[in-house]
Amino acid sequence: MSLLALEGLSVSLGGRRVVDGVSLAVAPGDFVGLIGPNGAGKSTLMRAALGLLPAAGGRRLGGEDVARLSPPERARRAAWLPQEREIAWPVSVQTLVGLGRAPWRRPGAAFSEADRAAVADAMARADVARFADRPATALSGGERARVLIARALAQAAPLVMADEPAAGLDPAHQIALMETFSALAAEGRGVVASMHDLGLAARWCGRLALLDAGRLVAFGPPAEVLTEARLAAVYGVRCRLDWIEGAPSVTPLGRTAKDAPATLELSGPAAPGGS
């Protein structure tokens, strides 16, 4: 049974069709990277898939129609890490991560042993355990991002969806995050993460979903999805594709000629850093 199944999902925002007929399925063990240019509809696709936006078409979480799930039922099937890293009040990191347990706790009930274990595990995975008692608002941007990742992990949902979770992290923590998501997939959970770093996506994701202007252009293993022609067509960039240490590697070199500003072409080989 798939954790997430979209069939012809379409979303219109303000009269404009932002997501257009997307069908895809995420099964246990999948780590799917959602890639595409700015404004391609990645965030909208994920929010609609979770039932946070009205949409047309089929969307099922764990086999059940999203529209028929109550908010807590939905939260037990999928965790969501929005791009906005909002922390409104200076609550402790531990308290914040504990919010991820909300869908599993009865109103007014104290934290159970299982809740505590899930919070501790999530904080360890996101490498924030040493901040446990600090106010979350006093942390740096990257540290906050990790605290919020820990919050999503503490939710212990079979599916984790994250909107640009790697943005703003240093390389070591980016790789650690990818390892964490890979480990979740290896445990039989599903992960969908939108990403702009194609190199990171190519190396770590089991499959990539390439979105352009609301349409799913390609969906498959990174080596199949990432081709020079496709990247030029969708992103307007020339890329070099290599195979390094057993995984595809993408190096964006420059914009395709038609989009590049004329001044750069004129400056030719004399430009700093040129040829």
């Binding site: 946070l52 939260a75 906005e84 914040l96 991820g100």
Partner: peptide, 14 residues
């Protein structure tokens, strides 16, 4: 408490 994370995240945790 959930709204500490913003409206979207609050909705996503039930």
């Amino acid at each position: 408490d959930a709204l500490t994370l913003g409206e979207d995240a609050a909705a996503s945790i039930g």
